[in-house]
Amino acid sequence: MSSVLYIVGGVLVLHAAYSSMEFHLLAKSMHQECTFTTVPSDIIHETVYGLVLIILGAIRSVRNEVAYTVEGSESSEGALKGININVAVKQDHEYLRPIEMKRAVAVSERIGLNDYAEFESRVDFVDLVEKRKEFNQWSEAQ
C-alpha cells in the first residue's frame, strides 16, 4: 500500500514540476505581453497533493505488522490434527515501537525471540553431531 502511495505521489510531483517548467518557458516567450507572475493554482495544488501522498506513504511504511510466533501451535481439530499452525501476534501500537524499553521488548517476548538470543544459540559452538544424534533418537521413537 505504501509503495502505491509513493508512486502516485511521485508521479503527481513530477507532473507538477514538468507543468511548472512548461509554464515558465511560456512566460519567457511571452515576456512583454505576460500579465501573470505566479505559477497557476492547479500546479500548486498538484504539488501539495503529491507531497501529502508521499508523506502518507512514509507514515504507512512504518506501520507495525502482524508477526508470527517462533513456536507456533499444533492443531488438535479434524483433518488438520497435528499440523503446525503459525500463531499471529498483534502489536500494541499501530505505528513504531514504544519508547520505553520494558514495553518495547514485551513484543519480542510474545514472539518468542529477543535481541539477545545469539548468547543462547551460539551457532559457531553448536555440536551438530550431538544434535543429529538427538534428532535421530527422537525420530526413531515416533
Binding site: 538470543a117 543462547e120 544459540s121 551460539r122 551457532v123
Partner: peptide, 12 residues
C-alpha cells in the same frame, strides 16, 4: 538469531 540450533527435534 541462530535460535534454531536450540530447537527441540519436533520443532527442527
Amino acid at each position: 538469531s541462530g535460535t534454531y540450533v536450540n530447537f527441540a527435534p519436533s520443532q527442527v
